[in-house]
Design a protein around this nucleic acid. Structure first.
Lengths: 151, 151
DNA sequence: CCGCTAGTTGACACAGATTTTCAATTGGGG
DNA sequence: CCCCAATTGAAAATCTGTGTCAACTAGCGG
């Protein structure tokens, strides 16, 4: 009941900001979820922890955390304004049929990043990779709907 | 004055849509720029070509072009809703210092895509890759501003 | 070349999301 | 424990994006 090992909260305090109840509630919800949450969803869930929390404060807390690099914005096609805690390099695989979102770990991108850095002189600090395709179920559904592929 | 080789316009007509002045203006602006443009910016620029253009029409045109895969949404951190013409598999490299947008051709992603397809059973049809980093100029600027890296 | 019709358009109304404003509250150093 | 500046929440102001509808026009048929 005393240990509060949330690295996010610690980082926030280290940056000279106060650890208020509102912020702790937001951080706790963010830390528990790793799927993207919109400010609205986040606020709703955080109210279970700290009832008087206002949506405005959620926005402010998110932008503060974002500035400090403690959360990341997730850009899915449908919901562009979801936030997730900064955790490794996760990427998204989106089904264009049923809009299911699958996450997969980063792998095999290092060589590409290194090559781009070399060619452009940039120092790459982050990457966003989203693959879009058809999941197995939607492939079957589509195959059933379009009998002959015309060829 | 007669040749209008805009492949985007042709594709639009091929899909059974009318080539109206409003749409042509939007397409022309999109084709001229390859940095991401927000609907607002797009509308402002397109009005130089076709003054009565309404913002509503820009939204409609963009979503139509998006459906047909003729434009792509660029998810930059600041402006999540910018659009850029789809041109092959180009990817974006965004400088977090000066917000410059550089494009680079797709390369070295095939193996990763194939591996994800194999593991998930998805058929990947598109991919969005955005790298964020610091361009050479901003690296220099930053180095000058922060004299000693403390180490 | 002309007229017709359905696809399109622009203005306005509307719904939501995000920001600003401001007085009241509160974290945490002294 | 006190105090002050950082922070908060509510309401209002902005912005962004969507739905509605009468007027307009691209492009087909003649």
């Amino acid at each position: 009941m005393s240990a509060d090992p949330s690295p996010t909260a610690l980082a926030l305090r280290a940056a000279g900001h106060r650890l208020t109840r509102a912020r702790l509630a937001v951080i706790q919800v963010l830390d528990e979820q790793d799927a993207g949450l919109s400010p609205q969803e986040l606020c709703a869930r955080a109210r279970a922890i700290y009832a008087p929390l206002g949506l405005v404060t959620v926005y402010r807390t998110l932008s503060l955390l974002d500035e400090l690099g403690l959360v990341r914005r997730v850009h899915s096609e449908q919901d562009c304004h979801a936030y997730a805690p900064t955790a490794g390099d996760r990427h998204h695989l989106l089904c264009s049929g049923c809009h299911r979102l699958v996450e997969f770990p980063c792998q095999g991108l290092d060589a590409l990043v290194a090559s781009v850095e070399e060619r452009t002189g940039f120092v790459i600090t982050a990457h966003l990779l989203e693959l879009t395709g058809l999941c197995p179920a939607c492939q079957r559904a589509r195959a059933a709907a379009e009998p002959a592929p015309m060829e």
